[in-house]
């Protein structure tokens, strides 16, 4: 039984994100748990990055496929919304893989203060994002909403290359 659950966990952890395939679901921090129910069903718990993440259905299907391939016949994928995912759940390994693939990883934002109105800042963000291609700090935001829900588009003023940035949330 212990071997089976370790095996199931290993199989689930190797599934990659459909939109950022350089990351596994474990690297991304959306895999919340892999357990075995009394009847032998493998129960995987996922959390979405954004409420409307269109990749969630594919993640479910990929997890089922990987676990079936590993010999687990009965698989159930559940979704949890609490606690909400934050980019702080992306592992150090995940951040390294993002940078290697030319995607600027998010900063760590730490625990968010509860209560009180969310401040609105009209000035452009003062923080800098280093270019994943040349390392220059002189980069600018092109669009806060990129090709996937979790990325923003930026451009490096030094090497002129555009790049994606996993925006802090």
């Amino acid at each position: 039984m212990v071997t089976a659950i370790l095996d199931a966990r290993a199989a689930a952890e190797q599934v990659v994100d459909p939109e950022m395939p350089m990351l596994t679901l474990a690297d991304l921090g959306v895999l919340r748990g892999v357990e075995t129910a009394e009847d032998g069903t493998v129960v995987v718990t996922l959390t979405p990055t954004y409420s409307g993440c269109p990749a969630l259905d594919e993640m479910r299907a990929d997890l089922r496929r990987a676990l079936h391939a590993a010999g687990h016949e009965r698989v159930e994928v559940r979704t949890t919304y609490s606690p909400p995912w934050s980019t702080d759940w992306i592992s150090d390994e995940g951040r390294r893989k993002l940078a290697d693939a030319g995607v600027a990883p998010p900063d760590r934002i730490g625990p968010q203060a509860a209560g009180g109105a969310v401040p609105l800042t009209l000035a452009p963000p003062s923080r800098t994002v280093a270019c994943p291609q040349c390392g220059a700090r002189d980069t600018e935001e092109v669009s806060r909403f990129g090709p996937t829900a979790c990325t923003a588009l930026r451009r490096c003023r030094s090497c002129a290359e555009p790049f994606e940035h996993v925006k802090e949330i």
């Binding site: 409420s51 919304y81 609490s82 009209l122 806060r144």
Partner: peptide, 27 residues
């Protein structure tokens, strides 16, 4: 209600981006 609380926890992060985007364009 735990479901409403959980939906709200995610929505706050998303809506903060929506409001920022709108405010920047209004400006």
């Amino acid at each position: 209600d735990p479901v409403l609380a959980a939906v709200a926890g995610k929505a706050v992060k998303e809506l903060t981006y929506h409001r920022d985007y709108a405010a920047q364009w209004v400006l």
